[in-house]
Simulated scan of single mutants.
Amino acid sequence: MSAPPDPLTLEVVELIAAVVARYHDEYEDVAAEHSLTGAQARVLALLAREPSPMRGLAQQLKCEPSNITGIVDRLASRGLVERRPDPADRRVKLAAATDAGRETADRLRGSLGFAREPLAALSEAERRTLRDLLRRMLESPDDA
Results as ranks from 00 to 15, higher is better:
Arg83Val: 04
Leu80Cys: 07
Ser140Gln: 15
Pro85Asn: 00
Gly56Gln: 03
Leu130Tyr: 09
Ser35Cys: 05
Leu46Cys: 03
Arg74Pro: 05
Lys93His: 05
Ala88Trp: 00
Arg84Gln: 12
Asp99His: 03
Glu124Phe: 11
Asp106Tyr: 11
Leu119Arg: 11
Ala48Lys: 06
Ile68Phe: 02
Gly101Met: 05
Ser123Trp: 03
Arg102Thr: 12
Glu139His: 14
Gly56Asp: 08
Ala120Gly: 06
Asp142Ser: 14
Thr69Val: 01
Lys62Asp: 14
Gly79Tyr: 08
Glu28Pro: 01
Gly38Pro: 03
Glu14Gly: 09
Arg128Phe: 09
Tyr23Leu: 09
Leu134Gln: 12
Asp89Leu: 00
Pro85Gly: 00
Cys63Glu: 06
Phe114Ala: 01
Met54Thr: 05
His24Lys: 11
Ala58Trp: 06
Thr98Lys: 04
Gln60Val: 05
Thr37Cys: 11
Glu26Arg: 09
Gly38Asp: 12
Asp106Phe: 12
Asn67Thr: 14
Gly110Arg: 07
Arg83Met: 07
Leu119Thr: 11
Ala58His: 06
Arg109Val: 09
Arg131Val: 09
Ala125Trp: 07
Gly56Ile: 02
Glu14Gln: 12
Arg74Glu: 15
Leu57Phe: 02
Leu138Asp: 10
Pro87Glu: 02
Pro141Trp: 10
Leu112Gln: 13
Arg127Asn: 13
Lys62Glu: 14
Arg128Glu: 15
Ile68Asn: 02
Ile16Pro: 00
Ala32Pro: 01
Ala121Phe: 06
Ser66Gly: 05
Arg127Ser: 13
